[in-house]
């Protein structure tokens, strides 16, 4: 059994802040928003990790929520790669 600690809830929270911070700076710097939405989604997934850790619900069916968020983020990354590659060529 994984013990509930402050760390397990707080670290994903800080990770989400860092991910969203980087995404925002990138959006601000490049002036384009859509390629950085996967980072926003990762921040959301990280918050889900924090909440699930708090209630000790990882390794239950709730983890499907995380899987969904990561899946959408990965598909979005694929779309970004394809679109940017087509623009390059």
């Amino acid at each position: 059994m994984i013990p509930i600690t402050i760390v397990q809830t707080a670290f994903p929270f800080f990770a989400a802040i860092i991910a969203l911070w980087i995404a925002t700076l990138a959006m601000r710097r490049t002036g384009i928003m859509w390629p950085y939405f996967p980072l926003v989604l990762l921040a959301a997934a990280s918050c889900s990790v924090a909440a699930l850790q708090y209630y000790q619900l990882l390794l239950t069916v709730w983890q499907a929520l995380l899987a969904l968020e990561y899946f959408v983020a990965q598909v979005w990354v694929l779309v970004v790669i394809i679109v940017l590659t087509k623009k390059q060529s």
Binding site: I17, C47, A51, L52
Partner: peptide
């Protein structure tokens, strides 16, 4: 858990 996760995300967004 859903409510807590959404609240976490709100706070992250507002902090950033």
């Amino acid at each position: 858990p859903l409510v807590l996760g959404i609240e976490f995300f709100q706070h992250v967004v507002v902090i950033v």
